[in-house]
Amino acid sequence: MTRNALHDDELPIDGDVVASLIHRERPEWEDLRLSPVGGGTDNVLFRLGDALLVRLPRTPGSVASLRKERTWLPRLAPSLPLRVPEPVHTGSPHDEYPLEWSVYRWIEGAPPAPDTVSDWARFGADLAGFASALHRTDLMGAERADELSWYRGGSLRETEQWMGPNFDDARPLVDADLDVDRLERWWRDALALPDSSAAQVWLHGDLRPGNLLAHSGRLHAVIDFGALSVGAPDAEHAAVWDYPLPACLAYWDALDLDEPTWLRARAWAIAVAISGIAYYCNTYPEFVAECRARLGAILAFGDR
């Protein structure tokens, strides 16, 4: 496998498996160089030649995400100001890998970081521009149902059903300078706010650094629309705490977010990070570090 399993029902995936799938379905590609390029919590990724990317779900539950992308990305892309994944092949299940898989056009770039982003305020404004364009895009008949009803587009109050134990689980796993009690208080304060009155919109669902690509110093592409859904926009804004303060402030200013929306977004950021630490503490240290950094940024930002 490309890394230790992240989920109990994860399938074994390596280069030999991918090469076999390519040989079966697209033999014209089998002489292209195949190399692993990592992956996230739901998929394993391989670069194929210079122009293609192979994406394979880690678990059966992630297959629906690829189907969503194949259905909706070609319809959404014309309305968006940044590059998004372009599906070029739908892979079928086989004995060596019993799930659907996908091939996309390769997009140049690297995750946003100090050495890939030249102006964080401009980055924050560009990210806000993408979110705004996505949220303005016509729903084209889509509704918040089935695979388009991911939890982050719902009411923050629904997190109360599963977040209590996560705070207790995360406390012994974080550094002493992370004030989990304060974070939990902010999350609970946000639960008391009324739900958003905003209209339901398209949501990317997970605008964390691993799902963005910078190129030539600027935000260039948004990838991995596996969490694509229809719902309230509060949780969409939660990712801004993954970026430096100038990006966070520029994003806030560009969208002119009101205080209740900002507080609900902060509570979503806390909930996702705390639950990520509790779930991946023994399997995905890079993601846990990202969650810890997000919580540290939230605390540093404070109540301003």
Rank of each mutant, 00 (worst) to 15 (best):
L56H: 01
L21Q: 11
A170R: 03
D253I: 00
V18S: 14
L127W: 04
A176C: 01
V103E: 03
L203N: 11
Y104K: 15
L212Y: 03
A113D: 10
L11Q: 08
L76P: 06
A128M: 02
P111D: 13
M1V: 12
V84M: 03
M1N: 08
L66E: 09
H204A: 11
D177F: 09
G210M: 00
P27I: 06
N43L: 04
G109Y: 11
T90Y: 07
V84S: 01
L173K: 07
T71R: 13
T116L: 01
T59R: 15
D42Y: 13
V44T: 07
V240G: 12
E25M: 05
A110V: 14
L213S: 13
V18W: 10
Y251R: 04
E69Y: 02
E143G: 11
P111G: 15
R144S: 08
A297E: 08
E236V: 08
G109A: 11
L52R: 10
A239L: 11
E160D: 15
T116H: 02
A125I: 04
C291S: 09
R3H: 09
G39L: 13
V272Y: 12
P260G: 06
L249I: 10
G91P: 02
P98N: 15
W150P: 00
G231A: 02
D258L: 00
Y279N: 06
G205K: 12
A265M: 07
A145M: 00
S196I: 02
V272T: 13
A199I: 11
R157G: 12
A125V: 03
I298N: 08
I13P: 08
R136T: 03
S275A: 15
E160V: 14
L80I: 00
L52W: 12
E100G: 14
T283E: 07
P87T: 06
E86A: 08
D14A: 03
R105P: 10
A128R: 05
L173I: 03
V222N: 02
K68Y: 12
E158R: 15
Y280T: 07
L48H: 04
P209T: 13
L80V: 00
S149C: 10
L82K: 01
D179G: 13
P57G: 12
C248Y: 09
A133Q: 14
R122T: 04
D258Y: 01
P111F: 13
E147V: 10
A278Q: 04
W29R: 12
L193F: 14
H7M: 09
S275H: 13
W101D: 08
R136V: 00
Y104G: 13
R157W: 04
L249C: 00
G226K: 03
A192T: 08
L173Y: 01
E236P: 06
L299N: 05
A125Q: 07
H94G: 15
G226E: 06
T159G: 10
G61P: 15
A64E: 15
A125F: 01
L156C: 11
D31L: 13
Y243T: 12
